[in-house]
Amino acid sequence: MKKLILASVFTFVGLTAFAQESEMAMAASEVVETTQDGFSEITMDNLPEAVSAAVSKSYPSATIDKAYVNDKNQYKLEVSLEDGTSGTLYADEKGNWIEL
């Protein structure tokens, strides 16, 4: 009889453990915009034509790898040349080179 009562208790405890609601932690996803020195990365579609034209005129063999913009509409361009060198250029929205 003791074994029957003990088995009933274990069964009851086991079933109640599975009946409890489990809290699932939902991972919140956030979109974080990275900034570098006040510059936010933009797509090449958002790069003004004047800036693209200035790069192709001054550096014909250069390829723009990444482009960034700040709140003053100044553009930071990471470019690479055909010979494997790379560098950073800064321009205003009219395509004039600036020093930062």
Score class of each variant (00 low, 15 high):
M1F: 08
L4K: 10
I5T: 14
I5M: 13
I5N: 10
A7G: 06
V9D: 04
F10M: 15
T11D: 07
V13T: 12
V13F: 12
V13L: 15
G14C: 11
L15A: 14
L15G: 01
T16Q: 09
T16C: 09
A19P: 00
A19E: 06
A19Q: 08
Q20L: 12
E21N: 14
S22R: 13
S22F: 09
S22T: 10
S22P: 01
E23T: 14
E23D: 14
M26V: 13
A27H: 05
A27D: 13
A28S: 14
A28D: 14
S29D: 05
S29V: 15
E30D: 13
V31M: 12
V31A: 06
V31E: 07
V32I: 14
E33I: 13
E33T: 14
T34C: 02
Q36L: 15
Q36G: 00
D37Y: 06
D37I: 07
G38F: 04
S40V: 05
S40H: 08
E41Q: 13
I42D: 04
T43F: 14
M44V: 05
M44H: 12
D45P: 06
D45R: 15
N46K: 15
L47S: 07
E49D: 09
A50P: 01
V51S: 02
V51Q: 05
V51K: 01
S52M: 13
A54I: 01
V55I: 13
V55E: 04
S56T: 09
S56P: 00
K57T: 05
Y59M: 13
S61N: 14
S61V: 10
S61I: 09
S61A: 15
A62P: 06
I64G: 04
I64W: 10
D65K: 11
K66D: 11
K66G: 04
Y68Q: 03
D71F: 08
K72Q: 11
K72G: 00
K72V: 00
N73G: 00
Q74N: 15
Y75W: 03
K76M: 13
K76D: 02
K76C: 05
L77E: 03
L77G: 06
E78M: 05
L81G: 05
E82Y: 03
E82W: 00
D83V: 07
T85F: 06
T85D: 07
T85N: 12
S86V: 10
S86P: 04
G87P: 02
L89G: 04
L89P: 00
Y90G: 00
Y90E: 04
Y90T: 01
Y90N: 03
Y90L: 07
A91Y: 13
A91S: 08
D92E: 06
D92Q: 07
D92F: 05
E93T: 06
G95F: 01
G95A: 10
G95V: 00
W97A: 11
I98H: 06
E99A: 15
L100T: 12
